[in-house]
Simulated scan of single mutants.
Amino acid sequence: MPKDCQPKLLLIYGKGGHKEQMKRLLSKMQEQHAFKFISMADVVDEFNAIEHLQCPEPRDKFHLWKAPWQLAHISAVTLIQTIKLLKRHNITGIVSTGPGMAVVPSLIFRLLGKKVVYIESWSRFYTASATGIFMYRIANQFYVQNTTMLDKYPKATYSGRL
């Protein structure tokens, strides 16, 4: 399949608050710029992406013994999906509101010199999320939505609430 050379963003989000935050961010971004995007989430696409990859969350919060196997499996699946996306599209960067499924694609994009933007959850006031801890080291731009999180992420940018 030939590569589509029109620049696109990869938006990665999860269900619940992650999706709501992406919905608000996407609305604000589309007010200012016209752009094409691909989405990767653990939910069905509701944002009319040109392509959507459904990817399950890499960990099971309720079954500790299952977590390492699930993490390895989902990481491999996400790696393969990301490589296929890069072959089919000219993706210039990633914007993510979490969850953990964003780590593998973000790492790949950074290794390829592409832009990675991460927005820590608005529900975080005093503790860093597991995804946030990794993404703080990976992302080109890291945003927090609560000023109290600047203690946990000193190089982050306070963006206010979405």
Rank of each mutant, 00 (worst) to 15 (best):
K84I: 11
G100V: 03
L79N: 14
S96E: 08
S121Y: 04
K115I: 04
L107E: 10
T92I: 15
K115N: 08
L85H: 02
F134R: 13
M135Y: 00
R110G: 00
I91N: 04
T147N: 14
N146M: 12
M135V: 02
L86Q: 11
T97D: 03
T82E: 05
M135R: 02
M101T: 13
F109R: 01
F109Q: 00
S129C: 11
A130I: 15
L111S: 09
I94P: 04
G100L: 06
I138A: 01
G98W: 04
M101W: 07
T97N: 09
R137G: 04
G100P: 03
T147G: 02
R137Q: 05
S123P: 05
A102C: 15
I80G: 12
T147A: 14
I83V: 14
F142N: 03
S129K: 11
I91C: 07
M135P: 00
E120G: 10
P99S: 14
G93T: 05
M135K: 03
P105A: 10
T92G: 11
Y143N: 08
L85N: 03
G93D: 09
L112P: 07
Y143G: 04
N146C: 14
L85Y: 03
S123Y: 07
K115Q: 12
I138T: 01
R124V: 04
V144P: 09
N90H: 13
V103L: 12
F134W: 12
F142S: 01
I133L: 08
N140G: 02
N146D: 15
R110Y: 00
I119W: 04
I80W: 13
I94V: 14
L112G: 07
T131R: 09
G98I: 05
V95N: 07
S123V: 14
I108H: 02
R124I: 07
L111Y: 08
A139Q: 01
G132Y: 02
G100N: 03
K87G: 08
P105V: 10
S96T: 15
T92V: 15
Y126T: 14
